Simulated assay, not measured.
Amino acid sequence: MHELSITQSVIDAVVEKMDGATVKSVRLEIGKLSGVVPDSVRFCFEVICAGTMLEGARLDIDEPPGLARCRDCEGEFALNDLIMLCPCGSANVEVLAGRQLRIKSVEVW
């Protein structure tokens, strides 16, 4: 479960940047094509935050969809999973969005 190490890295980054402030909430952006399971991150967040300045903090997760462009027909289309086929049938696609994994904001008391 790589979500555990990802969540630990997020918490470490927040603790480092917030310099002792009590954290009220953290908002993450986890793209649909990132390979990260948001529900697993939620579970790990609660467990790892225990005993830290993030204990009791709310975790909000935005899950932007995937977006790709076909290199053959030049059309853009939504991707909801890792099957990257253009509606024209081509697999020659460029992913434009949906792989992101980032901390969008942190709210402190």
Rank of each mutant, 00 (worst) to 15 (best):
S25M: 04
S25L: 02
V26W: 01
V26R: 00
R27G: 00
R27P: 12
R27Y: 03
R27D: 03
L28G: 00
L28Q: 01
L28F: 10
L28R: 09
E29T: 14
E29W: 05
I30Q: 06
I30H: 01
I30L: 11
G31A: 08
G31F: 01
G31C: 13
G31I: 07
K32G: 06
V36A: 07
V37T: 11
V37L: 06
V37P: 04
V37N: 04
P38L: 11
P38C: 12
D39V: 08
D39Y: 02
D39L: 11
S40P: 00
S40D: 15
S40V: 01
S40H: 12
S40Q: 12
R42T: 14
R42C: 01
F43Y: 12
F43C: 04
C44T: 05
C44Q: 01
C44R: 10
C44M: 13
E46D: 14
V47H: 06
C49Q: 00
A50E: 14
A50I: 05
A50V: 03
A50N: 12
A50F: 06
A50M: 03
G51Q: 03
T52L: 11
T52S: 13
E55M: 07
E55K: 07
A57F: 01
L59W: 00
L59Q: 04
D60M: 11
D60G: 08
I61A: 10
I61N: 09
D62C: 04
D62Q: 14
D62Y: 12
D62V: 15
D62W: 02
D62N: 12
E63F: 03
E63M: 11
E63G: 07
E63L: 07
E63Q: 13
P65C: 08
L67W: 11
L67C: 07
L67Y: 10
A68F: 11
A68G: 04
A68V: 10
R69N: 04
R69F: 03
C70K: 02
C70N: 06
C70L: 04
C70G: 10
R71K: 15
R71V: 01
E74S: 12
E74L: 13
E74T: 08
E74W: 03
G75D: 11
G75C: 08
E76R: 00
E76M: 10
E76Q: 02
E76G: 03
F77D: 13
F77S: 08
A78D: 15
A78P: 12
L79I: 07
N80W: 13
N80E: 12
D81V: 04
L82D: 15
M84H: 15
L85P: 00
L85Y: 02
C86A: 06
P87Y: 01
P87A: 09
P87M: 02
P87W: 07
P87F: 05
C88A: 10
C88R: 03
C88M: 07
C88T: 10
G89P: 13
A91P: 02
N92D: 15
N92E: 15
N92V: 06
N92H: 13
V93L: 04
V93K: 04
V93R: 09
E94S: 10
E94W: 03
V95S: 07
V95K: 01
L96C: 10
